[in-house]
Design a protein around this nucleic acid. Structure first.
Lengths: 206, 206
DNA sequence: GCCGTGATGTCAGTTGATGACATCACCGTA
DNA sequence: TACGGTGATGTCATCAACTGACATCACGGC
């Protein structure tokens, strides 16, 4: 019989998500998480750098897919088309785990500290995208801007997807959002009492 | 004679910036900051919610200017033009305090926790911009996207400005960056082994 | 001259985070 | 088969970030 139950890290992730959901992030203690996972507080910190990180798995298939799709897109594509391509490729990764994604997002939306961490993760993603674009031969500023705009698009589309009661596919939301982006230089079309679905998403940090 | 020296908050901000600069953020203690300002640790926490917040003044002229310029731009302007207008109006606010801005940025660049807080502040800025754009009559998604792209543009331009040895004006950097944005749908122009000034800016959080 | 108020000080306590050292099943090897 | 190294975990101690409760006392109004 083995000395320890397997997958300590996974047990910690699971325990943390459950507790954060039940009692809120602030009200749950690292010691609690560890105990629920049958481990010690000290061991928690051997697997995660801090109390927030447990919600952001080290192995990130979304990042991998994005990087891969960006690197292998046809060389002739304009920067924004590369982004479009990459985002479209990456969408299914989230669709597969839609339940988990929504649960995580609920916890994050309820706590500013976690929102900060999420923004940092997205910034890291943008940074990685920019590097990949440079390696494709793009000039530094162009690459950085295309990457930032790509992530910005993703943020908007993702929030629409998460809050969408009708569960439209993420890929569709991304297409719509990219389409919106294309019209940003056209004269403003005002919304005069349209029957548009209005999103009352979270307003970010103050 | 008055009971306390005036401007406790200002003294704390100054003390903090100096110490963060000298010894680094991690190596300086809230108690140290307070003592140097002639106050108590407890008093520090009456003025700032945490150790990071002291670097991000509550009164934010940049945000005010952005909001104002966005709200008062001609109604006929396309969304991106409103953003362009607002960013251009806001640029001088930073130019005026270029020294302070560079000092702050150096401290922030040296510490991931501070970078997270900065991202949160920028996200709040984007959120506010989006609200203002909606109040101008823009549909929610369009507003959110335009705001995010505006902030993304600002981030890229600001980083170029801060790291620019030649001290070109921020307004110019913003114009250039917006111009770059306009070419993102054109076929990629490759940089063949240029000796381009390479920006080794901070790469974000891993 | 008394009284409420607000900015600060004092103190005690919780929790997040980290370093140093101990434990002991497992695994390869002599 | 015995032996020693290794890696994941536990134990203990300590620091610093934050917070609640209560005390202080110049100032300004009445």
């Amino acid at each position: 019989m083995s000395r320890w139950k397997p997958d300590a890290r996974g047990r910690l992730e699971k325990a943390a998500l459950e507790l954060y959901n039940h009692q809120g992030f602030d009200a749950t203690t690292v010691a609690e998480i560890a105990t629920r996972a049958g481990l010690t507080e000290r061991t928690f910190y051997r697997h995660f750098t801090d109390k927030r990180e447990v919600l952001f798995p080290a192995a990130n298939p979304l990042a991998d897919t994005l990087a891969n799709a960006t690197a292998t897109a046809p060389a002739s594509l304009p920067p924004l088309a590369v982004i479009t391509h990459a985002l479209t490729e990456a969408a299914p990764v989230l669709e597969e785990r839609a339940d988990l994604a929504r649960q995580r997002q609920a916890v994050i939306a309820a706590n500013p500290e976690l929102q900060e961490r999420e923004l940092a993760k997205l910034a890291a993603l943008a940074s990685m995208l920019a590097r990949t674009l440079r390696e494709r031969g793009l000039e530094a500023t162009t690459a950085a801007l295309a990457a930032e705009i790509g992530i910005a698009t993703f943020k908007v589309a993702f929030e629409r997807w998460i809050n969408d009661p009708d569960r439209h596919p993420l890929a569709q939301r991304i297409r719509e959002t990219l389409d919106t982006a294309g019209h940003l230089t056209a004269p403003a079309e005002h919304v005069a009492a349209t029957d548009d679905v209005s999103f009352t998403g979270h307003e970010g940090v103050t």
